[in-house]
Design a protein around this nucleic acid. Structure first.
Lengths: 342, 342
DNA sequence: CTGCCGTATGATATCGCTATCAACATTTCT
DNA sequence: AGAAATGTTGATAGCGATATCATACGGCAG
């Protein structure tokens, strides 16, 4: 019943599906089905194929599969940073959502650079991905064109879009910035500084929310803004606190555009003997793990990063399957965490 | 001179190399060479091909390339965690080292699980990677066998191996654990606790170093060890500090197996009114960014994570090219950062 | 002028798998 | 019972690139 194994000794020592099929005494196509669509093959043959797979140690060749089926089973994910905990949690959500689906996730780090993003998208397109997850809404015109031409489904993460056709999962950065500023205003602060670094699109949106709230309260003053393009770090937060106090000595509260800066600012206050929040209130953005534990604990905005990744991946998967999702824009909101520092 | 473009309207709307070649009026093979080995093609034809590539917006198909050349240009990287800053810095080093080489990096997160690792390696082997970068030395027997069978070059990162044939880049975790413990002993501490979580192989090696030093000084006492398997977090550090003090109230110093735990322990001391280092010295491991800035600043061991990634990737690249590296074991050492907390 | 050689170009045969349709066996329906 | 529907299996033809070998050509030695 069982034919002898194929012995075309190919150059590559690799075990191929054809060898498995020969070993099991079935056609290659049947072996293929036994592996990828077991329901379509009779129990008896399926068992023989399965056994042959084990005996020969067969490992399918993804490249061949992709080529023949024009389905890469690859999803490309672009994040602006891997050292930022925000995005690693987004990635965790994505991985969990895609876990069982046998998707290969291609993680790209754009380092907050449009050029890098363009380069990465170009590279990833060579892998013919079934879908892409991008961070942010704004991309260079060339990127937009490349994406349109490629017809790859794309879901944008982290912020809400005004374009209703764009698939988006996130929360409104503007509203979050507004909410935090309002909180400080309601606490009675008048001279509220805004400390920002990196100046990526999310930061700029938060700044927008800040200005909106300050404007409404008649408190807007550009002396209260310290914004620099360097990457956001604790060390920079410490430094920028100094710059802020030099620029606006009467400042009574500081809204840092993220927790790293806020941590640095708090530590620096401690070193200078400035008491937080008595003399200066400080708050951050993102609610990193340390924020709840440090002393004083940090008032900040908790953002649903894990869920953003999770829901974005689920949405993308649905679109890849050809479904037309009822909800193209998923707003996951945010939570203001009032703690000791403000 | 230029023939009309090919118009075999393939099912996939994709622009193929054949179309580019037709558009440029050359053979497919010539177009292929013009793109991948430009030196082998005359200036004139090369220009025509380049132009056709741009005009048609040609994107090479990586799967086809991999299949035909049996070179995937993929390097798989396995790390136990993405939320741990240590490994994201390793990744940064890898990316920088491999930047120009047109390698595709497949990042896998094993979540500190042997099973996950096995699964990921199985998946990644389907992509026929040119090489692999693994974290740690110890892998399940099955993984070892799979790797041996696949004949994929592997470089192990993070620790030093005793097997001289194994390609390794890292530093001795045992020595680092020993050094930190000695430091505390030399400072006059007698009851030095060891706080550990996660209990992955690196943590266990550090524990080994700790015990060795304590043994030598005649200070070893298992009441001084608190080790749990849960993931390492700031919150857990805070909790375990309590457990340590309950278990060994006379403890006068604590060596935390990583900075997260140490941060939690320090914060918890502050809440309990225990002064660090006067009443209790605390030190960590890894030197995360916050450690230098928090108050008190944290005594810890700085580890060359970025360089580990960088050198490991360079070593792997050399091996892939067929070179036989003189130095198969690269020890990048570590640095004890003496700060305020101990 | 013949013939050999190195270089640029092209034709063809795979790489390993799946899509597709044909062939046949087995039910189910009228 | 005969036709139609259903379910399995197999043969064949690509998917889009590169490896390999063959061919054409100009240059140079003899």
């Amino acid at each position: 019943m069982i034919k002898p194994a194929a012995n075309k000794s190919r150059a590559s020592g690799r075990i191929t599906l054809a060898m498995v099929a020969a070993h099991a005494g079935v056609a290659t196509m049947t072996a293929s089905r036994a592996i990828t669509q077991p329901d379509m093959v009779s129990q008896a043959l399926r068992d023989r194929v399965d056994q042959a797979v084990v005996e020969l140690g067969y490992v399918p060749n993804r490249a061949a599969r992709a080529l023949a089926s024009s389905q890469s089973k690859v999803i490309a994910v672009l994040v602006p940073s891997l050292s930022n905990a925000v995005f690693t949690e987004v990635l965790a959500g994505i991985q969990d959502a895609l876990d069982a689906d046998d998707y290969q996730i291609l993680i790209g780090n754009t380092r907050y650079s449009d050029k890098e993003e363009e380069k990465l998208i170009g590279t990833y397109l060579q892998s013919n991905p079934d879908g892409m997850l991008l961070s942010g809404l704004s991309h260079s015109p060339r990127v937009q064109q490349i994406l349109t031409n490629s017809r790859v489904p794309v879901v944008s993460m982290m912020d809400m879009s005004t374009d209703p056709s764009q698939l988006t999962v996130g929360f409104s950065q503007v509203q979050a910035g507004y909410a935090m500023t309002r909180y400080l205003i309601d606490k009675g602060h008048k001279r509220i500084g805004f400390l920002a670094a990196q100046l990526d699109e999310r930061t700029l949106r938060r700044a927008e929310g800040y200005r909106q709230a300050m404007q409404e309260a008649g408190l807007l003053d550009n002396k209260l803004e310290v914004m620099v393009g360097e990457p956001s770090t604790i060390a920079l937060g410490a430094e920028l606190l100094g710059r802020m106090l030099a620029q606006a000595p009467d400042c009574d509260a500081i809204f840092c555009c993220n927790d790293d800066l806020a941590h640095g600012a708090v530590y620096q206050c401690q070193r200078r003997g400035i008491s937080v929040p008595a003399q200066l209130a400080i708050c951050g953005f993102n609610d990193l793990p340390a924020s709840a534990w440090m002393n004083p604990s940090l008032t900040t905005v908790a953002t649903p990063r894990y869920r953003i990744g999770y829901e974005a991946a689920k949405l993308l998967r649905a679109v890849i399957k050809g479904e037309d999702p009822a909800n193209k824009q998923i707003d996951l909101g945010f939570t203001l965490m009032a703690r000791e520092s403000a």
